[in-house]
């Protein structure tokens, strides 16, 4: 290598770093450092209402307490149930939507736009919307089902299981189209000649779907699953607006529990332990998914 070439190299490296550095700096300051700080706080005992306690270093005490906390256990179960149910439903609905908007037809642009609208609606609005639809007196659901037989009206959100179901439903409604877009991307990658060949071989529509579409769609499906799982674990707005965790803690998710302990109760140490625990769970799940997806998402060498 000549000297000038080496010089260009190092200049390029410098430029490369100068390009990455600002983004990295901001990310580290506003995301990585806070997580580290949260972890540090979670090793302390801090109670805003009890300043005389000071901030005492207690090691892993908060985590041990977390393991034995019945409310946290309930919140974990609700969160896991929410993640499982909502991701599965979103993937199913997303796949259906993707198959529809992949077809060629007149007005497809409009249909695609219509489907994207729930995704674009602020979650807070969507939450109020679904809360209103399932209102016990003025709700659309009761009107649709029972018309003017008002004595049959059901107070949906007063039943723990149904309230949980409605939160899931609102999430599915809101985010299925995002899953659909990711799946659509996968569909567009499947070459048409594969289907033509299968048709020549006499394969029916179901067989083509089962043996061509699904297997080739696997990476896209897994990717959608990864995104949706990460988001579902972090559900907060829906619960905050629709149910505040009730009735009977049926919609108490970990994020909301973390919010309550950190910000309403002022238990800084314990609340931090809750949120760090959520982070660790998401991290573990994501690593499993990423392994399943196989190739790294961002890294692809230049051809």
């Amino acid at each position: 290598m000549t000297r000038s070439a080496r010089l260009t190299m190092s200049r390029e490296r410098l430029a490369a770093w100068s390009m990455v550095a600002p983004a990295l700096l901001l990310t580290v300051t506003f995301a990585l450092y806070p997580v580290a700080d949260s972890f540090w706080l979670s090793l302390h005992h801090i109670f805003i209402g009890l300043p005389q306690l000071g901030s005492q270093f207690v090691g892993l005490d908060n985590y041990l307490a977390l393991l034995q906390d019945p409310v946290a256990r309930q919140a974990l179960l609700v969160t896991l149930g929410f993640v499982l149910l909502s991701t599965v439903l979103e993937l199913a609905c997303g796949l259906m939507i993707a198959l529809v908007i992949h077809e060629q037809f007149r007005g497809r642009g409009l249909v695609r736009a219509a489907i994207l609208i729930p995704w674009a609606i602020p979650t807070v609005v969507a939450s109020q919307l679904w809360r209103y639809i399932f209102n016990d007196q003025y709700g659309f659901a009761n009107l649709l089902l029972f018309g003017d037989r008002v004595t049959d009206y059901i107070p949906w959100l007063a039943y723990p299981t149904i309230a949980f179901g409605i939160v899931v439903l609102a999430d599915v409604w809101k985010t299925s189209s995002f899953a659909a877009l990711l799946i659509l991307a996968g569909l567009q990658l499947i070459p048409d000649d594969l289907y033509d060949a299968a048709r020549v071989d006499g394969a029916g529509a179901w067989q083509r779907f089962r043996h061509i579409t699904l297997p080739l769609l696997k990476p896209a499906l897994l990717l959608a699953l990864l995104f949706r799982t990460m988001d579902a674990f972090r559900v907060f707005d829906l619960v905050f607006v629709m149910t505040q965790g009730g009735p009977g803690d049926a919609t108490q998710v970990l994020q909301f529990y973390g919010y309550q302990t950190l910000f309403t109760e002022g238990r800084i140490g314990y609340g931090s332990a809750v949120s760090v625990a959520v982070f660790l769970m998401i991290l573990a799940l994501s690593l499993i998914y990423l392994r399943a997806i196989g190739s790294s998402l961002l890294e692809r060498k230049r051809p």
């Binding site: 390029e12 990310t27 949260s38 972090r234 950190l262 910000f263 982070f279 991290l283 994501s286 961002l298």
Partner: peptide, 27 residues
């Protein structure tokens, strides 16, 4: 470009996209 420590940068970015808001809200 060739970014020294690229894997590290990617790891940080990936990690950040997984953070629950709650874990970073307080700090």
């Amino acid at each position: 470009l060739t970014v020294p420590g690229k894997r590290g940068v990617l790891a940080v970015l990936l990690c950040v996209s997984m953070f629950p808001q709650m874990a970073i809200a307080g700090p």
